[in-house]
Computed example of a mutant assay.
Amino acid sequence: MTSTNTHTNTPRVAVVTGGSGGIGRVAAERLAADGLAVVVSYSGNPAPAEEAVQAIEKAGGTAIAVKADVADETEVAALFDAAEKRFGGVDVVVHAAGIMLLAPLAELDLADFDRMHRINVRGTFVVGRQAARRVRSGGAIVNFSSSVTKIALPSYTAYAATKGAVDAMTLILAKELRGRDITVNAVAPGPTATALFLKGKPEAVVDHLTKMSPLERLGTPDDIAEVVSFLAGPARWVNGQVLYANGGVI
């Protein structure tokens, strides 16, 4: 069934940053399956983004790929321009782009901290600013936080700090959009089996993280995409919240 904009009776449109891989790609495919036209935003290699578009189209959906550095105001504005030119507007923004560089606070290279801050914090601010200006009435903005802000795992200090900033921006933007009928929420995944999460982790560490949840497994991208789908569609009374999708870890 096609998801339509109630005001114009046209298909709803989603912009998904980080949509070429990991949770972002699965979220893009889920939203396309929900009937939204999807703009898959990527920052580097176009091949995975085109693969995501092809997968969506093969499943009967509609999508395009657009390159944009989420921390670059001009490129993000052009991303939204492309969405509006191709599909007529933007109803949903899922900001899944982000990086995670781990080390204890005393050992983390400040260049890595600055890189995470640029992408995770400035990127959320830049994308959020365009979303606040462009998303149509009845729309939704979904940011990506992390359960590590509560779990407080060693070596995650800098990464968790960037996601704490995402939480603050999410809660405040929801109030700043008063009267617009636009919801703003964040999804905070727990340990999830993605390349980003599993990279460099010894098997013993992965086993420990697996057992943290009462469900005794890692999350999957599909688990997180289900929450994104809920916030992007039927969850009109959920607003200004950080939803912890972590299988009960906290």
Rank of each mutant, 00 (worst) to 15 (best):
I151W: 02
A103H: 01
I141H: 04
R129E: 11
A152R: 14
L79Q: 09
R129S: 07
F87W: 09
K150T: 08
S155M: 10
D81L: 10
I151D: 00
R122L: 15
S147C: 03
T62C: 10
D81S: 12
R86G: 01
A96H: 05
V142S: 06
R118W: 13
G89L: 13
V121N: 03
K85N: 12
V76R: 02
A97Y: 04
V92Y: 08
A83D: 13
V126S: 04
A96V: 10
H95E: 12
R122P: 03
A65W: 03
A140F: 11
I64N: 07
R136K: 15
I64H: 06
R115M: 10
T74N: 09
A65P: 01
I141R: 02
L101D: 02
A103W: 01
S145M: 09
G89I: 13
F87G: 02
A152I: 14
E84D: 11
M100E: 07
V127R: 02
N143A: 08
V94K: 00
A63Y: 15
F80G: 03
F113I: 13
A97D: 09
I64E: 10
D69P: 00
D109A: 10
V93K: 00
P104S: 14
S137R: 14
G88T: 14
S147W: 03
A103F: 01
A140G: 06
F80M: 08
T74V: 13
G128S: 12
V126N: 02
D114M: 10
F80W: 09
V93S: 00
T149A: 03
Q130T: 03
A103Y: 00
F87R: 03
K85D: 15
I64D: 09
G89P: 09
A63I: 15
V148G: 03
E75G: 04
L153N: 06
G139M: 08
A152E: 15
R129Y: 06
V90Y: 13
A131V: 12
K85H: 12
H117A: 10
A71L: 13
I119K: 01
F113D: 04
L101G: 00
M116R: 08
L101K: 12
V142W: 08
L79G: 03
A140I: 06
A140T: 05
I151S: 00
L153Q: 13
D112F: 10
S137A: 10
V142L: 06
V66L: 04
K150D: 10
S155W: 00
V66T: 13
G128F: 08
